[in-house]
């Protein structure tokens, strides 16, 4: 019988995280394409201004797309970053540190982005 090395205490990719990574990726694909094409490729001649942004964020569709994109993209990015860093970090303590750092950075950027959206919306 083959014996394997004991499993790491901080799993590389728990099943629920793997599933959420796939689901968020699917959602992001549609949202980010809409985000980029609408803002940059539909009418490339216009320059984005403050007025355009404020008018857009007041529309429910744009607000929903922007806030969902903020949450999902940060989650997907931070999970991916954790996954890459786990290739170079194998000790359990260091792994949990990496995982926590990714979570904290993601949460901080999400809070900042949400504050920005609310500020612009209430102008």
């Amino acid at each position: 019988m083959t014996r394997y090395a004991p499993a790491a205490r901080v799993s590389r990719m728990p099943a629920w995280l793997w599933l959420l990574q796939r689901l968020s990726g699917l959602l992001i694909l549609g949202l980010v394409m809409a985000h980029m094409v609408v803002n940059h490729y539909v009418d490339p001649a216009t320059t984005i201004t403050v007025g355009y942004v404020i008018a857009n964020v007041r529309k429910l569709t744009f607000l929903l797309v922007d806030s969902c994109l903020l949450l999902l993209a940060l989650f997907h990015g931070m999970t991916g970053l954790r996954n890459v860093l786990f290739d170079f970090v194998s000790r359990p303590r260091a792994r949990s540190l990496v995982a926590w750092a990714c979570t904290v950075v993601g949460a901080a950027f999400f809070a900042f982005g949400l504050a920005v959206l609310l500020t612009v919306m209430n102008r």
Binding site: V53, V105, F112
Partner: peptide
């Protein structure tokens, strides 16, 4: 993935700070 992740963080800061400095 790494490039997009770095861009995402920079994008949030650069576009976001404009909300307080129009």
């Amino acid at each position: 993935g790494l490039v997009i992740c770095a861009y995402l963080l920079a994008h949030i800061i650069v576009i976001g700070q404009a909300a307080f400095n129009e």
